[in-house]
Each structure stands twice: as C-alpha cells, then as structure tokens.
C-alpha cells in the first residue's frame, strides 16, 4: 500500500491529519470504560493517540482518564458542553474541533484522537465535520428494546457497540435476540458485543477503528 507518514504529511501540508473518531451513547452505557479499555490495546498496536472528553459542567471524565495511568494526562483534553451534549458534537462542534487541533499541535505525531461525547439520548449523532467515523455505545442493562426503537444514534453510527454483555442474564435480556435486532435495524452494518471492564470484544472494536480510519 502507498501509505503516508503522518508527521511528513503534516509538515508538507501544515494542516491536521490525525484520524478523529467519536464515541457517543447514553449516560452510563460505558463510553469511558470502553476508552479505558481501548487505550492499552491501541498503544500495543503502536497507535499514537489522544482523547477529548465532553461533560456537561465538569471535567469528570477527563480527570478519570488523566488519573488512570493509561495515558499521558497531557494528552487528555476536556470540553464542557454547558448544554445538551449533542450540541457540541453535532450542531456546533467548534469547541471540540479546537480541542482536537490543539492536541495535534502539541503532539505532532498523534495519529488518532478519540472524542467522547457526554452521555445523551438515542437521537445523539456526531457531525462529520468533527469526526471521520463514530461509535455509538449502548448497554444491555438499558433494555433489549433499544435497537427496536431505531434511534438515530443506533442507526447512523459506523459501529454499534452493545456493552455490558455479561449482565444480560442478570437483567433478563435475550442477548442473541438483541444482537439480531440490532443487526437488522442497521441493515447488517457492524455491531460488536463487549464487556469493556473485562476487555471482551475490545480488540474487535480496535480492529474496526484501525481498518476504517488508520487503514491498517
């Protein structure tokens, strides 16, 4: 493959070239846990990355990641939405774009920036002005009827992650049926089951990111 080097491309063009991936989903579905699980997997694959988190009026998720020891705290930027989280990832993503640009300026070799949305509802989607590709995270404890509700987040994302698969038997969820319905409403576009806390399925999510926007 005729592959470019990120740093050389940036020097040649003077513009940002890192891939940008969004991770959205309802409150408590496991977005931060998924990022915590993805970071070591992506690092092990040699991916130079940074993270932008979004919270309503705090920097809670950013502080959690900075304290995690998983990533250089300087590589985690926080955006305070101050309003419904989708407003800063879709209607006006300026704050997030600026946060991404600043991370790329401070870390010239960065090739992937993960943007974590604040917890939102099933209508939440990312602007493609902000990200190249995006993941929507739901969880089994939120109810196995979520795919059937056909929320825009569930339908339009590039990858749907159904997290906390280990909880299915404890919350009365028919996991195979939930997975089948999710694939059906998404016209067979990718759906991955995960248990982010134990790392199950996280490698598959990393595979999808690598293939879709890092081309390897």
């Amino acid at each position: 493959m005729n592959m470019i080097d990120n740093q050389r491309a940036k020097e040649a063009t003077g513009h940002a070239v890192a891939a940008r991936v969004g991770i959205g989903g309802p409150v408590g579905s496991g977005k931060t846990a998924l990022i915590e699980a993805l970071i070591p997997v992506l690092h092990a694959r040699g991916v130079d990355l940074a993270v932008v988190t979004n919270d309503l009026v705090t920097k809670e998720d950013a502080e959690r990641l900075r304290r995690s020891g998983l990533i250089d705290p300087q590589r985690v930027a926080a955006v305070e939405a101050g309003a419904c989280p989708h407003t800063v990832i879709r209607e006006d993503p300026t704050l997030n774009i600026a946060a991404g640009d600043e991370l790329e300026a401070r870390f010239p070799g960065v090739e992937l920036i993960l943007f974590e949305s604040g917890g939102d509802n099933l209508a939440s989607t990312f602007s493609l002005d902000l990200v190249d590709w995006w993941i929507f995270v739901i969880d089994v404890a939120g109810g196995d009827d979520i795919p059937r509700k056909k929320g825009p987040g569930t339908l339009r994302c590039d990858l749907l992650v159904i997290n906390k698969q280990d909880l299915a038997p404890h919350v009365g969820v028919d996991l195979p049926r939930m997975l089948e319905e999710a694939r059906s409403v998404r016209a067979q576009r990718p759906v991955i089951l995960t248990d982010a806390r134990r790392g199950d399925g996280v490698g598959d999510v990393a595979d999808q990111i690598m293939k879709a926007v890092l081309f390897r």
């Binding site: 891939a19 940008r20 602007s127 493609l128 002005d129 190249d132 590709w133 293939k211 879709a212 926007v213 081309f215």
Partner: peptide, 10 residues
C-alpha cells in the same frame, strides 16, 4: 452527499 464531510474513509 451526506458523506462528503468525512476526511478519512475507505
């Protein structure tokens, strides 16, 4: 048309 804003894709 809706996909044109992507900067990275296959």
């Amino acid at each position: 048309a809706a996909e044109l804003a992507r900067r990275r894709f296959r």
